[in-house]
Each structure stands twice: as structure tokens, then as C-alpha cells.
Amino acid sequence: MSRVQGRPRRVRQARRARRAVGVLTTLAVLGMWEAAGRSGSVMFLVPFSVAARGAWDLVSGPGLRQDVLPSATRTVAGFFVGSSLGVAVGLLLGHFRALDPWVRPVLEFLRAVPLPAVLPVAVLAFGPNSGTRVGLIALGAVWPVLLNTMDGARTVDAGFVDAARAAHVGRWRVVSRVIWPACLPQVFAGLRIALGISLIMMVISEMVASTSGLGFFVLQAQRAYAFQDMYAGVLVLGLLGGLFTLMFTAVEYHVLAWYEGQKGIGRG
């Protein structure tokens, strides 16, 4: 009993130690940024304190509605659209393998096209509007989710599927009740990658023929040599990405609690 009771305590202590190391590392990096900015050893680098002051001005002033919120909305919308499409197509192709020869060449071609190269074509075809940018973000998010979902669906233990079919469970119920839960860990691995790609595509899409957003803000500041604003925009982008990651991790931890338990990782 003492070993069983002591294990959650060791897990909590290990988590606290990792968090403490993370905080100390972050503070050390910010301290080096501050020192390098004040020493002038790096050209055009402003101190962290100056960038942080500019970031606060950005999120507490008109920039919140003009740039920060539009960027966050586009990122979330593109991520959800791309992820939903990736999950649906990935489950379909993973379970119905007869479809693979028909769609594989098209998927491989689309996946091989660099996304930044699609941006000018999309702007010319559909116009420089938010819908086009959301579509580009979705196009970037769809591939890691689709491939991970398809791979997860194909690696589900065949015994589970055969047992469900022996019990006369319908094909779609097999997908929703057997295959989908079993491939969730790989789906979330793809979703985590897709979230990072969504942020990158949001910035890239806002740097072309845009009038709002953090990407537009950073580019305009760079062109005007407003380095405080440029670093402030970059800092806000980093904070936005960190916020999205924390929210995603909380959802992942809740949804995959059963999987962590199977791996022997206590929740304590």
C-alpha cells in the first residue's frame, strides 16, 4: 500500500520540478533578451521590457479589436474547419481501404504543394478577405489531422472490429464506437501539430493584401522601422500561441484521461 500511495506523490513532485525548470528557463531567456537589448550588441533588438510595454499597449488599446481578435478568430476558425475535415476524411479512408487507390494520388499531390505558394493564387481567385485566409489556415491544418487519423484507424486491433461485427453491430457504429475511440490518441497528436500550423498560416496569410491582424501589424511595423511595435506584435503572437496550447492541453488531458491511465500515468 505504501508504494501505491507514494507513487502519486512522486508524480506530483516530478510535475512541480518540471514546471519550476520551465519557469526558470523562461526567466533566463527573457533576462538574456533584456540584457542584449540594452547592450546594443544585437542590431535593431529592443529590450524585453520595451517590447512587453508595447504588447500591453497593443492588447489594451484599439489594437485588440483591430488586430489581435481578428487573428485569433481566423486561427480558431481555420483550425476547426481543417481539423473537422481531416478527422472525417481520415476515418473514411482509414476504415474503407478500398477508397485508397482512388483518392491517394489526389491527396499526395495536394499535400506536396507548398502552402505559401497557394496564398497568391487564392487571393487572386477569391479576393483578400477573411474567408480566404480561414480557408488557407484550414488547408494547412487538415493534413496532419487527416494522416494521423487515417493511420490510427488502420492500426486499430482487428479483434475489436471483428468482435463488434460478430455482435451484428452496424458498420457506422463500429466506426463511431470502436475505431474512433481507439484512434483518439493519434488524432490528438495530429491536432497538436495542426494548431501550430494554423498559427503559422494565420501570420503568413495576413502579410499578403491584408488590412488587419497581427501578421499585418508586424509587417507594417517592420516597414516603418517601428521596432518596438514589431517586437510587441511578435510577443503577442507568442502569448496567443501559448494560450491556445494551454487550452488544447487541458482539453487533451480531459479527453484522453483513460489513455493516460492505461499507460500507467496517474492523474494525481
Rank of each mutant, 00 (worst) to 15 (best):
G152T: 09
R133E: 01
V50M: 15
G131D: 00
W102R: 02
G82M: 05
F160T: 10
L45H: 05
A138G: 01
F126L: 09
V113A: 09
Q66N: 13
A112L: 13
L110W: 04
G135N: 04
V42Q: 07
R173M: 07
V59L: 09
L124I: 11
S83V: 02
P120E: 08
L91R: 05
G140C: 01
A153T: 05
V89S: 10
R173K: 10
V113H: 03
R74W: 05
A98R: 15
R65K: 13
A167T: 14
L110R: 06
A112G: 14
L115E: 05
D57C: 07
V178N: 08
R65G: 10
V178I: 14
R74H: 05
R53F: 13
R111Y: 11
D151T: 15
R173N: 14
V169D: 11
A77K: 06
F160N: 14
A55M: 10
L147D: 06
F79C: 06
G78I: 05
P70G: 11
M43S: 11
G90D: 08
L146D: 01
W172N: 04
W143N: 07
F96P: 00
V68G: 04
R97S: 14
A112V: 13
V46N: 07
L139P: 03
W143V: 06
G170S: 10
V59T: 11
L93N: 03
T73G: 09
A153Q: 06
G86I: 05
F79M: 09
F126G: 05
A163I: 11
L45S: 09
S71W: 02
V68H: 02
R133D: 00
F160K: 15
